[in-house]
Nucleic acid binder design. Structure first.
Lengths: 226, 226
DNA sequence: ACAGATTCCTCACACTGTTCAGATTAATCC
DNA sequence: GGATTAATCTGAACAGTGTGAGGAATCTGT
């Protein structure tokens, strides 16, 4: 095996087993989803005894979380690439440009979910261990060792642009975050789980329509009662 | 404990093992989610050998699907009850009443998700076995042995009402289905997985806001380009 | 009452995550 | 540089899982 010797502290015996385990996890999760994250199979890929992983992760669940975080980073990178690709085609009208940008963020989100369903499920499939009991101790802030931007960042940026051009009131940003997030995440889950038989064109149409409705709702004049 | 067993142990045959297995599955899924559907534990509850289940279900996955369908029925029942409870408080204005009804359907959906997270995940957590490979043989139409109405029905009804009062164009119904479904499902997942620390009031506010944005988007005048 | 088909049980197998005691090796101290 | 120490990896083992094969108990139709 050709292991590299990174110069930093992290490399001891195997080269960098921790990173190798996460990388193997990404490979398995890519086609197989979170269910494919089996400790013994990961160790088999890396070429190490199953128990060796316990030097770096206290339990398989922790390893899964690390893989999920990496997957979230990959998702953000893919979204960033998507947004860069369409950045040149923005309308001149700033309000329309801001709306277009929000739509593109949503499209990028759903597109990643449909393109990499295994990684998407791994990244976003929260609570893989069961039900969170109300009285349980809050899980640690779960240190983020991947400092790449997260998908959430792009949404915040899109909404900030809407605020800048006056299409969204600043105090409505929080509501808009939730509504937008729910829409794109719900779309992704629906298209993956419930409507897999749709063609790509049909799925794109569904996404476009839903995002149109979302932006219309976000930028519509608010009711008096609210 | 003494549910379906006509005679506790005298009878070698269990009265209705299939139903008992599903019932035990519901019990386990209620607090524990789909992950808690463990064959041997289900059999233990019913008081039968693990393999006895194979006389009624070819595999655990099939049993899980049966439990999921039952859970979907329970969800629909809960939604129905919720809708009945608020039916008397509808506004006089028919357009406003239709909008209110749609919001209540959404509220009922999310409310069930938050009230019975285990059953909700079991009912709606599609693809629990992994990734659906494109070339794989399509799973059977999965015969529906639970003829109670499904959650989807209430959404269709709400949108039909919006069409009736002229707030939604009939040809936009399909788009509205997807957008509404995505919103409520995304809301449920978000509130369960990503924002469990919110108080009930905060969650309710999030739901109300998102549904307001949705209805605003659905009933807003459509753009020329569409 | 008998034959056949269900229904259920016992035994067994290949997996899984995880633990414990030891072997091996890299980093550090004198 | 050599010895010590601590991190890293391995082997065997345990409890638990889903599932298969074959046999015992019971129900059903004739």
């Amino acid at each position: 095996m050709a292991e590299k010797r990174p110069r930093t502290r992290a490399t001891y015996h195997h080269g960098d087993l921790r990173a190798a385990l996460v990388a193997a996890g990404i490979t398995l999760a890519r086609d197989g989803g979170p269910q494919a994250l089996v400790l013994r199979e990961i160790a088999r890929i890396v070429g190490v005894a199953p128990n060796s992983a316990y030097a770096h992760f206290t339990t398989l669940t922790v390893l899964k979380k690390a893989v999920a975080q990496r997957a979230r980073g990959d998702m953000a990178a893919a979204m960033s690439a998507h947004l860069d690709a369409v950045a040149s085609a923005e309308p001149d009208d700033p309000q329309e440009a801001a709306r277009t940008y929000l739509r593109e963020v949503g499209r990028a989100y759903v597109h990643y979910a449909l393109t990499e369903p295994g990684l998407f499920r791994t990244a976003m499939g929260g609570d893989p261990t069961g039900i969170r009991v109300p009285g349980a101790p809050d899980d640690a802030p779960e240190a983020d060792d991947d400092d790449r931007p997260k998908p959430r960042f792009f949404l915040m940026h899109a909404l900030a642009r809407l605020v800048d051009v006056g299409s969204l009131r600043p105090e409505d940003t929080d509501r808009a975050v939730m509504a937008s997030w729910a829409t794109v995440h719900g779309l992704s889950i629906m298209l993956l789980d419930l409507l897999p038989q749709l063609t790509t064109d049909q799925k794109n149409a569904v996404v476009d329509d839903a995002l149109d409705i979302l932006t219309a709702g976000l930028t519509a004049p608010r009711k008096i009662g609210e």
